[in-house]
Structure formats: C-alpha cells, structure tokens
Nucleic acid binder design. Structure first.
Lengths: 341, 341
DNA sequence: CGAACATTTGCAACCGGGTGCAATCATTGG
DNA sequence: CCAATGATTGCACCCGGTTGCAAATGTTCG
C-alpha cells in the first residue's frame, strides 16, 4: 500500500473519494471490490490504483447493512479454564480469518450474562453462533433461538434439539475404545470421573464406555463426579474417593471425562503418601498430557476436521441434511493407562 | 420478552415497525433507545411496550454507521498456547461485555496473517486494538498504525513506541523481587530462562533481575533461551543445559520468564535419572502452578486492575497523559524456589 | 452499414439507524 | 386569556456501501 502522506489523519477514505480520483462513479468502485461483478478491465485497474493510492478499504459494516451477511460469527464459550478450548479457539479463529470471517468471543462464564451476551451478538447481527464446548442449557438454547434465524452449531458436544447442528467427535465410540483398552489390560473394577452432569450427558462418552464394558460382562462400578472441568476438581474428587474407600475395594482403572480432570486425578495419586495402583485415561490430548509428569493416555479429537465442518455448515454448504456430524478420534497411548509397577 | 407468535420467521424487526405499532415516528423510537434523549414518559412507555411485543433490538451496525463508534475492539493474540492468555481473555471479554463492547479475536499466530488480520479489523471499524501478550514487532506496529487513529494498547508487555499505550505489570520490579528471593535463599549461581528474544526485551523482567542480583554483587551467570513460551521448549532448554553442563558448574536457581517455561523446566528435572538441585521460579501464576506436581513459586500479575485500566484507556478516559501504566504484582511462594532436600 | 445482442456504467432507492433543525404541543405567568 | 418559554416530535438528509434497472457503449454478423 502506497504511503498516503497528505491526509492520513483525516477521516476514513470512502468509495466516493476513490471514485472521484479514478474518474468513475462510486458504484463502479463498489463493483471493483465485488467478486464477479461486471466491470471493464480498464475501469478495474483505474479503481484499484486509486484505491491503493488513497489507502481505501471498504467499510464492511456499511456493506453488511445492505447484504444480508455480516461475516461475523459468535464463538460462545463458557469454560475458559479448560485448556482444551485453546486448541479449538486457535484453529477456529485461524480458519475463520482465512475466509474473511471475524470471530466475536462471547463469554458466558458468569451465569447472569447468558442473556446479555446473546443479545449483544444479536444486535451485532452475527451470521451464526458456534458453541465451543459449552453447556447447552435449555435456557441458553431458548435465548439463542430468539435471534432471527441463523445457524446454531455446537461443537464438541451433542444435543437433541432439532434446531441445533452437532459437529463432534463420536463420544460413544471413543468410550467403547477406552473400555476395550482397559479390558485388554485386564482391569475389572473400573470407574468413570464425570464433569458437570448436564454436560456429561451431551458427550456420550459414558454411554459408550458403559456399553463397551458391558460387552465384556463388566460395568462401571464407580462414578466420581467432579463438578467442573478443572484440575483442582479432579484432584478433590479422586482424593475424596481414595479417602473414603478401603484399598481392597478400590477401582483399578479410571476414565476421566477430559484431560484436565485426569491430570487432577494424577496429581491426587502423586500427592498421597501411600502408593495407589490406578490406571488413568483422559480425553482431548491437551499439550500437558504429553508432559513427563503425567504421560497421560488420552483420546485426541480430530480438531481440524471438526472446525472445517463447522465452517462449511456456517457458510450454508451443509451437504445433505444431516443434522449431526460425528467422526471418530484417535487413541493416544502413553503410559498412564498401564498397570503401575 | 413477550412471545411473538405471528412473524418469528420474518425478517428483523426494525425501528419503523416499532414506530408504527406504537403510533409514533421512527425517530421517536430511536430516541427511546438513546440514553438521555428528549422523549416524553408517555411515548417512551408506548415505544418500549411495542418494542417488547415485537422483540425489537436496535441494529448496532446501522447505528455504528452514523455514530463514530462501533463498540467493537480487536483482541490481538499470538500465543494461544500459553495458558496465561486464558486468564486474560476471560477477564477481558467479561469486562468488555459488561460495558456493551464486543471482543473480536484476532489470531496472528501464522506469520503471514499479520496484515490480513489487522486489515480485517480495520474494515470492521474496530474502536481500538488491544495486544494481549503479543510480540510487538515493528512490522505489526506499522500495520496497526495504518488504521485510522484508534487507541493501540499493549497489555502485559512494554513498548517504546510513542503511539502505543502500555498497561502492564512492573517487570523490572518483579525481577528484582525474585532476585532478592534467591539471594535470601543463599543461592549464588543463578540463571534465567527467556522466551522469544524480541519479547523478552519488552518484559523488563530480566533487566530487573539483573539489577536485583547486582545489588548483592551477583550476576546472571547463565541465560537459557527457550525459543517459545511452550512447555516443551522450556523442557528442552533445561534438558540441553543439564546435558551439557557438569554438575559442579551448574546453576543453583533459575528464574523462568513465565510459568509454562518453568513447568517445562520442572518436568525436565523430574525426567532426569539423577537428582538435580535446582530452585525454580516462574511468572504469571497460572492455575497449574498450584498443582502438587509442581508447587511452583511464581509472580501473580494484577489482572483485574490491568484489564480495568485497559478499558479505561480504550474508552478515552485516560486520566492524565501517562502513556505507561505499570503496577506491581505479587510474589506467590510455594516450594519450587526452595533448596531441595 | 445497421440491426441485434452483450458489456459497462450511471442512477434512484434502500439497508436501519442517527443528527440538527424546525414545527408542534404543553406549561407558565403576566 | 394569550404570549412566552421549554419540552416533544417530525422531517430531510446523512453514514458508506449495495441492488435492480435502464441508458450508454461496444461488438458481432448478415
């Protein structure tokens, strides 16, 4: 972009300014910046030259006013303390930007901000709402639907609401794979640590885990509720269990609903004075899982595939009419699932 | 909001619709939604009633077109893998939302996306750019300045560019405090692990650390460059140092530029077969620092204060003309800074 | 060379609100 | 009771683009 030394402190350059300089009408300028519009090569060149000299960039808000689309999407987030969300945000914002979309972060961590956050998104005319690992309460869904018809997509979770598209890892299948892993290791007394219950039901991991164990005549013998997806909650949950369960009654293996809980659980094992035999598997494969402090066996979700699919749906290219898009992830074997020596 | 059962699939409700229903002109509707506008209590009530019945919400994009402000701010982020950014994003988006601002996430992780990301922000007419723990390269600053005059604020870093406001923890002071801590513990051979060098110079932690040691006749005897703020980089950096340094020559204490590096360093200690005597201190106080696996002594930045100040400046209430706002943080003592038994 | 068709380009109107001013209405007071 | 004063309200026009249509220009071919 050529340096504009005369009027850089002035107001924004508009299409009319460019038009005047290029000797065309402002409508022609508009066409120059519209893909596939009817414009002569000559006019196009003159407009682009003038635009470059003036440092012109179209005002997307004005454009959005007449077009129906704003190219802004709301990313609804409620667990900014779960490290997994980082990976997702990174990939998602990057792919969105590459396609000219702007990501608006909607933080609904504070309970009372449900309504105000969605209302704000509505007023800013977002093209769609993407729920990233968000607890989809009925209240939240109801509020989202009050916004004029835009795609509502939940990623990393499931939902039975017919108005919400689901793009997620196949939690049921993942649960079964992990059940098989434990069975192969010869464990028989097996537990499951779950997060916020409303959320757990949307993940289907527990269902698959139960079914998988069932196929071998086993069942989940202990459920450890952790309350939130936070390391300290996982820590406390397992600690409490160990405190209140005599050694001979304890589970031998534990599947934690996600990595941050599993890491809390591993911390609990480390912290105790006695040595506890307990195999642990997590979910997500966050960076820390690879740490030599944890060596966590876990299940990696196909992030890039999921994000791509979310954006396809967002831009209305949803092939077929499948409301749900479920893909398998990949088991990442480290050492935490092994019987300890 | 009253259920609107007749036209919920229709286009958006506009001010004119509300006006018609309330029996006033659309300008009166506009006034009803403008703080401090001149409108009779009677008209206000009628408009609000009609608006509620129709589910009307003003179109903020249209409003932005005539007003000068958009109430959208760009959050520029480039290290979505440093856990500390979570805390910041959470606090920042929450405070912004509370004031009716929308946060646009600008991910500039991929080098080539510098320009396109900022250009996008420009076209969306953001009211300001906040650099959250971002490497402020000259190139980035130049691009940002090409946008028409809006506040540019860097948080968590320093900058000498006169056009950029700085809101940050006093890194120099923090470095001195940590130097004193090590000196009190009786350490004499002391090292420092730094991240990307361009960034390190903006933090001033090393300068303060050096000065602090200098006051006791000591100096930083080893610099460990980690390349990036990532756990595996911290891990590799310390590992490499230990591999290449005979035991008697090694440092006794190490200040890592942030927690995630420190955690990598602690992982390196854990992973080694021999026991290494090395006290470690980090910076940020991320959640994981409290883990019993790490017990990391660290330095907590006054997040809420910083965010509040950023928003004050963003909204143009910058009292006085101080370009820099530097506040002290707080040393959090755990056990990693102690001489190991 | 001129009719028939294809490309370009300009124009009025519009997207959904906001601004400044003038017209209208309601009070107040002489 | 009527003029002066202040509070409300309506209106034309603007913000910076886009759309649909018609006029203008260019091209093809009998």
């Amino acid at each position: 972009m050529t340096k504009n030394n005369s009027t850089s402190i002035e107001r924004k350059v508009t299409a009319s300014d460019v038009a005047q300089r290029a000797g065309v009408s402002k409508w022609t300028v508009s066409r120059a910046f519209t893909e596939g519009a009817s414009i002569s090569p000559n006019a196009l060149a003159r407009v682009l030259k003038a635009a470059d000299e003036l440092g012109y960039r179209p005002n997307l808000l004005a454009r959005s006013l007449s077009k129906k689309r704003t190219n802004m999407v709301g990313l609804v987030v409620d667990e900014l303390d779960n490290p997994n969300i980082f990976l997702v945000l990174d990939e998602m914002t990057r792919q969105l930007q590459r396609r000219g979309y702007m990501s608006m972060l909607l933080n609904i961590t504070a309970e009372h901000s449900y309504g105000s956050a969605l209302s704000l998104a509505d007023q800013f005319q977002v093209d769609g709402l993407i729920f990233l690992g968000t607890v989809l309460t009925d209240e939240l869904v109801r509020l989202a639907q009050e916004i004029r018809h835009i795609p509502l997509i939940v990623m990393y979770r499931n939902s039975d609401n017919p108005d919400i598209q689901v793009v997620s890892t196949d939690g049921h299948r993942a649960g079964r794979e992990i059940a098989n892993l434990f069975v192969e290791q010869g464990f028989r007394r097996i537990g499951y640590m779950l997060g916020p219950s409303s959320e757990s039901t949307q993940l289907k991991r527990l269902d698959g885990f139960r079914d998988g164990l069932g196929e071998h005549g086993l069942s989940v013998c202990t459920l450890l509720p952790a309350g939130h997806y936070r390391r300290d909650c996982g820590f406390a949950a397992l600690n409490h269990y160990l405190d209140s369960t005599p050694e001979q009654d304890r589970i031998e293996a534990l599947f934690c609903e996600n990595d941050i809980l599993a890491i809390g659980a591993l911390d609990a094992l480390r912290k105790r004075s006695e040595t506890v035999q307990l195999a642990i598997v997590g979910f997500d494969d966050i960076e820390l899982a690879a740490s030599p402090s944890y060596e966590l066996t876990t299940y990696r979700q196909p992030l890039e595939t999921l994000v791509t699919e979310v954006i396809r749906r967002l831009t209305g290219q949803n092939a077929g009419d499948m409301r749900r898009f479920l893909v398998p992830g990949k088991l990442i074997l480290r050492s935490s699932h092994l019987r300890r020596e």
